[in-house]
């Protein structure tokens, strides 16, 4: 199962109707071309696996000594002073900001991106599909600093009154409580991130929606399904694994996006009072590391930031694994 499109890419020995599909022919594996291509493909595969393993190892080796010296609880503390004789650091703030902003981004980007993909594949007139799809793809190619600039200069002035309205109307709700911070709040960052990841969701969803077999669509229409009912009974279920994979890629980008977030985020002063409000500021893992790259002066200091990076790595890995499990559990119904 490809993590990009969600369609099976590696044959597992059985074809669609359960019959065996041909495996590599033993007799031909000795030929030069086969050895060359087979070797190159195998080497690429091995290198990728080795790289991931080595990155994880690097992160762990660098992080462990710093964690041993840590005077604070790494997971539950908000203190961040990794330097000095008695270093103490915890990631709670970054974890909350990263996860909250990424969640907001996904809540907006996935439904919106899927809707755009459905429009492009199912509703748009034929002449419009190609150009419109190219435009969406172009959005994915915009450098993130441009989103940062746009967010700061164009979007922030619009967002400020909106935030004020939310605070005055729904301020009793802890997530929307007033904080006095404007500008790079978590909600604002989440919305900017959502715009950055919509093209990812759309591009991949569009691919898989477009592959829905005509036979399934006609089957639904012949039962008396309306256009939307046809989409609901055939296109969406068929595209489900692809949409999940697309959402995972998008989430990876949202969790790890650095430049735009670093640019926009309102960092909190040391010792600022904690609140759960989405109108709080706060650094994400990526922005914290980027903002402080100049301070990697001692192994403990560096190790503290690397430990934070390791958490981001584990987070992404965990989310991907969950998505994989969700897709696998429904596998019998997706082919």
């Amino acid at each position: 199962m490809s993590s990009v499109t969600g369609v099976p890419t590696v044959n597992d020995g059985e074809g669609p109707d359960g019959q065996r599909v041909p495996q590599a022919d033993r007799a031909s594996t000795g030929r030069l071309g086969d050895r060359l291509f087979g070797g190159a493909a195998t080497a690429s595969g091995v290198i990728v696996i080795a790289m991931v393993t080595l990155i994880a190892t690097f992160l762990i080796i660098q992080a462990v000594p710093a964690l041993m010296n840590n005077q604070e609880n790494f997971l539950t503390s908000r203190v961040w002073s990794p330097g000095g004789e008695e270093p103490g650091f915890g990631i709670l703030e970054f974890l909350w900001t990263t996860v909250a902003a990424a969640t907001i981004a996904m809540l907006i980007a996935v439904p919106f991106g899927v809707a755009v993909a459905l429009f492009l594949t199912q509703y748009a007139p034929a002449w419009m599909r190609g150009p419109a799809a190219a435009l969406v793809d172009l959005l994915a190619a915009v450098p993130s600093i441009v989103y940062g600039l746009w967010g700061l200069i164009t979007f922030a002035p619009f967002f400020k009154p909106f935030q004020g309205w939310l605070e005055s109307t729904f301020g009793w709700f802890p997530l929307l409580a007033q904080t006095g911070i404007t500008g790079g709040t978590i909600l604002f960052i989440g919305i900017v991130l959502s715009i950055m990841v919509v093209p990812i969701v759309t591009a991949l969803s569009r691919e898989i929606f477009g592959q829905t077999p005509l036979a399934h669509k006609e089957g639904a229409l012949a039962l008396g399904a309306t256009h939307w009912e046809m989409i609901r009974t055939t296109v969406l279920p068929f595209g489900r694994p692809g949409v999940i994979s697309a959402a995972m890629l998008a989430l990876g980008r949202a969790l790890g996006e650095t430049l735009a977030v670093t640019f926009l985020v309102s960092s909190l002063p040391n010792g600022a009072a904690w609140t759960w409000s989405l109108f709080n500021g706060g650094e994400t893992f990526a922005s914290k590391i980027a903002n402080n790259a100049a301070e990697f002066s001692s192994p403990t200091r560096t190790g503290a930031y690397i430990a934070a990076g390791l958490v981001l790595f584990v987070l992404t890995f965990a989310v991907n694994s969950i998505a994989r499990i969700v897709i696998e559990r429904r596998k019998a119904f997706s082919e």
């Binding site: 077999p213 399934h216 089957g219 039962l223 009974t233 082919e335």
Partner: peptide, 30 residues
């Protein structure tokens, strides 16, 4: 199409649905 049903050249059960759900699909649409 709700009054005039159709069966196609190639069997096309909905692949994401169980046997039961395939048969129930039209009723659920109604």
């Amino acid at each position: 199409r709700r009054t005039v049903g159709m069966v196609f050249q190639r069997p096309n059960p909905f692949p994401t649905m169980s046997i039961y759900d395939n048969v129930a699909a039209g009723l659920r649409l109604n």
